[in-house]
Simulated assay, not measured.
Amino acid sequence: MEFNLEEGKHLNDECSTLILPALSIGNVGQLAVDLLIASTKAERVGYLDDPNVLPCVGNDAYAPAPQGDLALPLEAYESPSSALTLIQQRSPVVKGMMVEFAKNLANFAVASGKKHVVILSSLDFGRWQTVDMSSGLPIHYLSNTNVDGADDKCEKLGWKKMKEYDPNQKLWKYLNTLAEGNANEDDISALEDDLGEEDYYPSLPFAAMFSCFKAKGLKVTCLLCYCSEGDNIPDAFHLAEAACNLVGLTPDTFKGNEGGKWVIPFSWQSVYGPPPDMSLF
């Protein structure tokens, strides 16, 4: 993975927290990062070139009057006023290369002086075993603060630890082995014929990223929400708000954001296509 700085830009040492998505159902993590970039007025400082990510290109996702800046698969943004670095990922990882990609991201985080990594992702609502929405849609989390994945700050924020996390489960253990460089990733094919229901969570991208960041000695927190495919913009707001609560921010603190409101990314105007032609009805 190569990091290419924009001309005249540099990485700010004060931006010690990195927030990034892990691709999953409904693309909630990506939508939440979109919302954070737009609302914090973060500026693109560079892009990451990784052979494990499929190429894509598009128009500027945040400016209403694009000046010709292209959106690329992996971009780095910074908001010095919020002390945040944000990475947006717009295309999937090549099949079978998720751990290698996660290792490269972890190396970038260490090289750029990050102290805390926050991963935003989603889980399949259909696999939620004990549904409790009495206090709204809950945020689930996973942290490396303690061996069992628990974190006191997350608990105080009212979030639920992902109870399915078991560091002694075979696939979680294997991910740790891969992340630490003590196994060949090709060996995972031996496990594929023996995967069960308990292997769903460690098979997701966020799990590989969690293991690789942890192996580098970084503090890492995964914020997760259950959802289904469809219009997941409300879930994105929910996850972005959780990320802000974790790092001690509110829309009121976003520099240049008048009225303390979230800023809707320009690209969201067409995220689910144009409205129906009403002349049909």
Rank of each mutant, 00 (worst) to 15 (best):
M1G: 09
M1H: 11
L5E: 04
E7P: 02
G8E: 03
K9A: 12
N12Q: 07
D13I: 03
E14Q: 13
S16R: 15
T17P: 04
S24Y: 00
G26V: 09
G26S: 08
N27A: 10
L31R: 14
D34H: 15
A38C: 09
T40D: 01
A42S: 14
A42P: 10
V45Q: 01
G46W: 03
L48D: 00
D50R: 04
C56Y: 08
C56D: 11
P64D: 06
P64G: 06
P64S: 11
A65R: 14
D69N: 11
A76W: 00
Y77M: 05
S79T: 10
P80T: 11
A83T: 13
A83W: 03
A83M: 07
L84T: 14
Q88F: 02
Q89A: 14
R90G: 07
S91V: 02
S91W: 10
V94F: 03
G96N: 08
M97F: 09
M97V: 00
V99N: 06
K103R: 14
N104I: 02
N107F: 00
V110C: 00
H116C: 01
V117Q: 00
L123M: 14
F125M: 15
F125W: 12
F125G: 04
R127W: 09
W128G: 07
Q129S: 15
T130R: 08
M133E: 14
S134W: 07
L137N: 11
P138R: 12
I139R: 10
S143G: 03
S143R: 03
T145F: 00
K153R: 15
K156C: 01
K156W: 01
K163I: 13
Y165E: 01
Y165P: 06
D166V: 04
K173C: 00
N176W: 02
A179C: 01
N182A: 02
A183E: 09
E185M: 05
D186K: 13
D187M: 04
A190N: 06
D193P: 01
L195V: 11
E198K: 12
D199I: 06
S203N: 07
S203M: 05
S203D: 02
L204C: 08
F206V: 13
A207Y: 04
A208G: 09
M209I: 06
C212H: 04
F213Q: 04
K214F: 00
A215N: 03
G217Q: 05
L223I: 10
L224M: 08
C225D: 07
C225Q: 13
Y226H: 13
E229F: 07
I233P: 01
I233V: 14
F237L: 05
H238E: 05
H238F: 05
E241N: 15
A242T: 09
N245L: 11
L249W: 12
D252A: 14
D252E: 15
D252I: 06
T253C: 02
F254A: 10
E258S: 15
G260D: 07
W262I: 12
V263P: 01
P265C: 07
P265I: 05
S270K: 15
Y272M: 10
P274R: 13
P274Q: 12
P275W: 05
S279I: 06
L280D: 12
L280A: 14
